[in-house]
Simulated assay, not measured.
Amino acid sequence: MKHLLILVVCVLGAYADVSHLSTTEPNRGPPNPYVFSYQAGRAPGHVDRQHTEVSDGSGVIRGAFSYVDPKNQVRTVQYVADENGFHPKLSHELEDSEAVKAAKRKHLALYHRIAQEHASQTPGQASLAAAPHASAAVVHATNKHLSEFERIAAEHAAIGAAQEAQRLALAAQSEHSDVDNGQYHP
């Protein structure tokens, strides 16, 4: 009886559908166009969000979704998704305030002035009039770092000279002790 049960389980296992375990992509056939849409709300009869999407079957998807933001305004995003990615278009872009518009104008004017100054210079030429002047703190820090750099460079030069002298002494000693009339003496 035990062997019969094992045989039945093995036979059923051999005929089991394991196609979902396959790593190859199934043949999907031609793309199918579709349309879907839904609306939802937090209270019965009240819609505060919706989504609609349409695919023509060629791989291009168009859609729109809307929601109510925390300021109780309806915001809508229309989009196209294709082989080049997702391209949203916001229908609720906010207009800049007067302060932001003024700041943008000031920034653009400054940008153009600097661009003209740089365009009038030849490559490698520094505008001395436009060069920033170092404060006392910057001058002090610069001098401190320069003196440290010079001290370290002198230290490294002394170490390098000592190592070179040691190398030359070892090389001279090797020449006299290693080779004597064409014979090697350790």
Score class of each variant (00 low, 15 high):
N72D: 08
R105M: 13
L90V: 06
H133C: 01
D82C: 01
P44K: 12
R49T: 06
R28T: 14
S22Y: 13
S177D: 14
H133S: 04
G29F: 07
A119P: 00
K2V: 14
A169Q: 12
A14N: 05
Q125P: 00
F86H: 05
L110G: 09
I152A: 12
D17F: 00
V11W: 06
Q78K: 15
Q166T: 06
S22F: 03
R105L: 15
V77Q: 04
N72H: 03
D56V: 04
T52Y: 10
L146K: 10
V139W: 04
G182E: 05
A102S: 04
L21P: 01
F36R: 13
T76S: 00
P33W: 06
E93R: 13
A158S: 10
G85D: 04
A14V: 03
G182F: 10
E164Y: 09
S174C: 10
M1T: 13
E95S: 09
L94I: 11
T122K: 13
A141W: 00
A14H: 10
I114N: 10
N181R: 14
A99T: 09
F65K: 04
P132K: 14
D56H: 08
H92P: 01
S19H: 07
G160N: 10
Q183P: 01
S135D: 01
Y184H: 12
H140C: 05
H145K: 08
A161V: 03
V179R: 11
L170Y: 02
E164W: 09
Q183C: 13
T23Y: 08
D48Y: 05
A109V: 08
L110A: 15
L90G: 07
R62M: 15
L4N: 06
